[in-house]
């Protein structure tokens, strides 16, 4: 294990209660500052992998280390503090529709506030300014006081990225961030994610369907098929044929 590894996934297996294997003995390391695309068919285990990395669900076997900490041991407050440093971006954006963009973005800081301060909406001036800066980064500042449900899909995902920026994350997990967006909007959202990586030096793992987007934006590509890791190469050395293999493997 080298110091520059932010994430280590060692022989991770996840078996669901119904007996289906979501992940099958997966191992890989992620260096600080990498931008990695995880590709594979839907149902291949990509989302399961992401949900395991930030402990939204528990794994059956193996270990996951983040910054050298074994996350399976974390409980309660420790777990919540650990999650503060992991940004998560979802396919369905998961904004609170009834709240303003500002409140949604500020909710990225939730882990740093006590319950009663959250209820009363007492965020610090510094955090409010930070929310303005984050929204400005993704070009959404003009919508600061609009309600989240008045935005388009692409705008919602940008707000979700701004929310993640509030966390100053060590690691960003983007789970199919562009699956419900049109191609042009997808490109924009991917650029925003890339900026997180280039400007803020965040490590980014992104789940993608599209091989083209993976080749265009990622440093490194990991392929998953039937819960197994079947491909792991730098993007520059990957050919479209390699990637096709991830999708069609076994059947071709």
């Amino acid at each position: 294990m080298s110091d520059s590894d932010i994430l280590q996934v060692n022989h991770v297996t996840k078996v669901y209660p119904n007996g289906i294997k979501g992940l099958d003995d997966i191992s890989f390391n992620v260096k600080r500052g990498e931008f990695i695309a995880v590709v594979g068919l839907s149902g291949a285990g990509k989302s399961t992998l992401f949900r395991s990395i930030n402990r939204m669900q528990d794994i059956t076997n193996g270990e996951i280390f983040i910054n050298g900490t074994d996350i399976s041991k974390l409980k309660g407050k420790e777990l919540r503090h650990f999650r503060r440093k992991i940004g998560m971006i979802f396919q369905s954006f998961n904004l609170v529709n009834r709240l303003t963009v500002q409140k949604n973005v500020l909710s990225g800081r939730v882990g740093y506030y006590s319950t009663w301060k959250t209820i009363l909406g007492l965020y610090s001036k510094g955090d409010k300014e930070k929310a303005v800066r984050s929204l400005d980064h993704v070009n959404m500042l003009k919508k600061l006081y609009d309600r989240a449900d008045s935005l388009s899909g692409g705008q919602m995902q940008r707000v979700a990225i701004a929310r993640t920026m509030m966390q100053e994350p060590d690691l960003v997990l983007a789970d199919e961030p562009v699956a419900s967006l049109d191609p042009k909007t997808s490109e924009g959202v991917m650029k925003d994610l890339r900026n997180l990586n280039v400007k803020d030096h965040d490590t980014v793992l992104v789940n993608l369907h599209s091989i083209d987007l993976a080749l265009e934006f990622a440093d490194r590509i990991i392929g998953i098929r039937d819960g197994q890791l079947v491909f792991d190469k730098a993007a520059a050395q990957s050919t479209p044929d390699d990637l096709k293999e991830i999708y069609e493997g076994g059947n071709s």
């Binding site: 400005d136 003009k142 600061l144 006081y145």
Partner: peptide
């Protein structure tokens, strides 16, 4: 500093 201006809210909304 920001590329676009911070929107303002009316007194009633704020």
């Amino acid at each position: 500093m920001h590329t676009s201006e911070v929107p303002r809210r009316s007194f009633v909304k704020k």
